[in-house]
Design a protein around this nucleic acid. Sequence first.
DNA 1: TTAGGTTGTTCTCACATTGAGTTGTTCTCG
DNA 2: CGAGAACAACTCAATGTGAGAACAACCTAA
Lengths: 250, 250
Amino acid sequence: MNEQDFLAAYDPSAYPSIAVTVDVVALTIRDGELHLLLIRRGQPPYEGHWALPGGFVRPDEDLATGARRELAEETGLGGERLRRVHLEQLASYGAVDRDPRMRVVSVAHLAFAPDLPDPAAGTDADEAIWLPVTALTSRQLAFDHGRIIEDGLERARAKLEYTPLATRFLDGEFTISELRAVYETVWGHPLHAGNFHRKVLSVPGFVESTGASTERGGARGGPRAKLYRAGDARLLHPALLRPAREETVR
Amino acid sequence: MNEQDFLAAYDPSAYPSIAVTVDVVALTIRDGELHLLLIRRGQPPYEGHWALPGGFVRPDEDLATGARRELAEETGLGGERLRRVHLEQLASYGAVDRDPRMRVVSVAHLAFAPDLPDPAAGTDADEAIWLPVTALTSRQLAFDHGRIIEDGLERARAKLEYTPLATRFLDGEFTISELRAVYETVWGHPLHAGNFHRKVLSVPGFVESTGASTERGGARGGPRAKLYRAGDARLLHPALLRPAREETVR
DNA sequence: TTAGGTTGTTCTCACATTGAGTTGTTCTCG
DNA sequence: CGAGAACAACTCAATGTGAGAACAACCTAA
């Protein structure tokens, strides 16, 4: 620090004026497709464009609390349902001109949720929807939110490899096939059912059996599947690696 | 966003007052030990405690630029040497009471550098040193910098697994043994020399041969070693995994 | 009610990767 | 010159992975 910084430090009105916001990349799986929570902006800048839920960090809340509050406001979620949503910090975005109104640093967060109700009820005038990520390319996104979403999706794909967070897209009890569907949806391609089954059961602490089975077979046939719940592992060891992706390596 | 937020958005003086800083966890390897750049604070709060290099983000610079500037100021580094330092964003820290003077959100960064000169010259009155990370426990650290350092070290250890960033701790040309020493130093335990050698050469794009060898054998004997430089891979595939660490998994 | 197709689960087998140890050679130091 | 160290290449067993097959349980549609 130089002398100027020190002076600034002692005079709360003298430090550079930068606003701090939180934005949330909230993901869920609906009808076998990965969906993202978006808000349509009702005023300039980027009026009519789609944006991530977010807003200013309040003086009395920390970053994670602010992100969870924004998520609650837009989804109408609360209590136990909200508490079960996985929320982690993604990264911060602070390009000088990312908001035309003023200097804003946004601390982006990433959320994984089981299928949630439509967000319309209980929020303000802005339109909020769960949009399939496959439909993103055709949408106009506000600010640098396109970049934030890309980073969030890549983080989500990577996290499924070495953490048990895929279970956060499911309800408390699930079948191995449902878990496999999460991986296939987030990674975007099919997995070998037999190998996946073997792998999931062999990783210690990933899932634990409930002893129960589904009431009926699948909609298109097949036997009843055994039910599992999330285990106590916080990391998968060894990891469940995505099939090789040579392109991304160089 | 609710109505209050909208009003705030249009009135630059009405948004919550939060300062934005950058801090840098700068790592290098000296004498076979991992070192960290620390500054001794010359004034309260935390006077006399050790802190990460950092300071306010300036209105005209983005986050990465600010972090690189702070690093340059404290190391006296510039030009090509500075440009070769790997710098990436680590995470943001925004607990309400992390700075007693005011609300501060710090965007922490992580830097990997080859052995650098002592930082004393060219900087301001504060004392700056490269401290072995093994000596950290006995030091009083300012703010939440202990936590930030922990997160930085864990990120560094993880990054060595799946990226070729270990080469950033070395000069342009290096031997496989020197590269292995980086891994052993950062991970904190010895690796099997033969297996490491095989693995490094088998991962495409990790290192490429220069064709040359060292002028002399090692200080304690042994043949001349072949020299390599960093390859063009940005990710290691397959990764070079740390030996299992059961404790951290649950 | 039955036929045909789907799914959950368990196997098998070939192949790749890893951990551990060995060998041979080159070099430095005393 | 001899001892010890380190580079580089090899072997071998254990483990993990990809691909496919087997089989029973179950659904829907005819």
